[in-house]
Design a protein around this nucleic acid. Structure first.
Lengths: 343, 343
DNA sequence: GCTTAAATTTAACGCGCGTAAAATTTTACT
DNA sequence: AGTAAAATTTTACGCGCGTTAAATTTAAGC
């Protein structure tokens, strides 16, 4: 029979026969108390199932154990997946992560930063919106809260950036496509939301030049985060207007490619590397759905685990170092080429 | 020049020339103070950009303004999308929502419930894991925290359930498929994670019987939340073993269908409603990606907006009512048939 | 200008726990 | 058994704000 509810740490200290400061110490770090008292506390814990008040805990702590994770768009499974991995790492390290999504809107991103400041997190892992971020708001935030940027870099902001090496992505896909057939035309949004897109375009251009080839770029209209639809509309238009100069397309990212493939199917264009196919399509990101496209998508994969681990590890180092790093660190991980059926 | 940082409400009260209790009142409800003082506060707010300490605010409040949103699997864009809408509604109503994902694991779901209790939310919107939920943990939680269940119903738990009417989904797809061609074989997981799956199967059986037809069901192996892969493997096996008794397939949900279509493409089976197609595939949910499958997926759509709005509205009513409702409410919304190219 | 109601100010307490310092107990080791 | 180090207990303060009650000011109506 669970005794009358424990109201606070004082009461729990009484029923467990241990002083409150020791209980407090235990909750901050179970290994900081003697083994025997730890046992007694944990025994009592089972019987009374008490948990310290979350607000009181953080009210008067120098540093909370909270970590904010901010992604630009949680409905994108790519971000959902990376957030999931990061979240797990934080929990394992004894922190309390809270997940936020900017939903593609600057105003929302700013609100989240405001909220985060009031939560006084030990640190923040921030994947900014990118082009539509309020740079000055982010800069101010980063000055006040130990922050590691990931996915999208914004020059000079945050104590560190952890992401993927866009050149590694594009160089591998371009080289592969070139070796196995015609070199690709690059397919992207005219005004991409994400700075990685610009890096990828530049990487494409320089790779093509390195191969002695002429870069060809299709830029499609549309703004926002509905990339699949933008890719689909753009592809339909490109096909109708006969704007595809090669038999090979390299999309800036998988979500555009998903839309592109959808348009090809609709138009009866057979995509793939088989002899009956007329178009090859490849892309970048290894989006969780890219293995289920028709045909399955050849793409360059992020090293999810490495990015997540390194971002979290960097943040922990930052927190332990008092919120500042010697120099701003930039860590980029290479891609892994995933050869599937689309190219 | 932003003056020296405001450290607390006392300081902000001083610089704004208003007493602290009035400032406090303002932050709890801006409309509760006189228009003129509200102006003065907001003017000062612009100059000093002060925000009350989140922890102190909630420490001593009878009821926090926090709302917990729990989904079983945030990497599923379906849940990401509904969470996004719900989140927005909560913010508009002046609450502070926090999003959690159980990541498909019972242990994680239980941890979240524990965390939520310590956060003392005004209310919780919970989409439980379903079959793998720890029923007794959820029951205990719901007794202590005002909770509205959504998506997956668990009989008797929470003060209300808001979701979709599975019979409406299945009856529409079955009827449509039957009217336009052969009646469908039902394709599902042998041990579905979600109770909606069972309701859908039963609805399929009763609809088929109502039409005087024999229900045919393909049950595929596999557990967990990688539905696309499970659907794909199951479809490959069904095709290879020639287990598909009809030329029409109705998948329990879109994610299975995405995998199914992927398998068909791989096997060279032309899916669709055109004369050259040999198989029709339809499904349920109107997953955000289902318009981009090849061919685009005919499916039954959730009324996202209605479910979100009603769930939130019910929760607010519950909160205002002191955390209890007269009777447990169950609200189901009908589906809308989305006719695309796959069937 | 007077009366009242409404809003604000003043004053003060408490929430639950972090934290610090000093006193005490327990443990480890000679 | 004796000693020093480590762990725990005692005591006490403070965090920032919610909240209340009484005193005071302001606004609204006549």
């Amino acid at each position: 029979m669970p005794q009358s509810k424990i109201r606070n740490m004082e009461e729990f200290a009484t029923v467990s026969g241990i002083s409150r400061p020791t209980i407090s110490k235990y909750f901050n770090d179970p290994s900081s108390v003697r083994q025997s008292t730890r046992q007694r506390i944990e025994t009592a814990l089972e019987e009374y199932d008490y948990r310290p008040n979350f607000y009181a805990i953080n009210q008067n702590r120098r540093l909370t154990k909270n970590i904010g994770i901010v992604v630009p768009y949680i409905s994108d499974p790519f971000f959902a997946e990376i957030a999931r991995v990061i979240e797990r790492r934080c929990i394992e390290a004894g922190f309390t992560p809270t997940l936020f999504s900017s939903h593609g809107e600057q105003a929302h991103e700013n609100d989240i930063l405001d909220t985060l400041r009031s939560i006084k997190p030990a640190g923040v892992l921030l994947a900014p919106l990118g082009r539509s971020s309020d740079k000055s708001a982010i800069e101010t935030f980063c000055r006040n809260v130990p922050t590691v940027l990931f996915d999208s870099n914004i020059e000079g902001m945050g104590e560190a950036f952890v992401g993927s090496d866009n050149f590694s992505f594009v160089s591998q896909t371009v080289e592969y496509l070139d070796r196995t057939g015609e070199a690709p035309t690059f397919f992207e949004m005219r005004y991409p939301a994400n700075p990685n897109a610009n890096k990828r375009r530049n990487a494409y251009i320089s790779m093509m030049e390195r191969l002695g080839l002429t870069p060809e770029i299709i830029r499609v209209d549309g703004t926002g985060w509905a990339f699949e639809e933008i890719g689909r509309q753009g592809a339909l238009k490109a096909i109708d207007d006969d704007l595809v100069p090669t038999n090979t397309i390299l999309c800036s990212n998988d979500r555009l490619a998903i839309g592109f493939l959808s348009a090809c199917y609709e138009k009866g264009i057979k995509v793939g590397r088989t002899s009956d196919a007329t178009l090859r399509v490849a892309s970048h990101d290894d989006h969780p759905f890219s293995r289920f496209t028709c045909p399955s998508l050849t793409t360059a994969a992020h090293d999810y685990a490495a990015v997540s681990d390194n971002a979290v590890e960097t943040l922990f180092r930052l927190i332990e170092g008092g919120g500042r790093l010697e120099n701003r660190e930039e860590t980029l991980f290479p891609a892994r080429l995933i050869m599937r059926d689309s190219a």
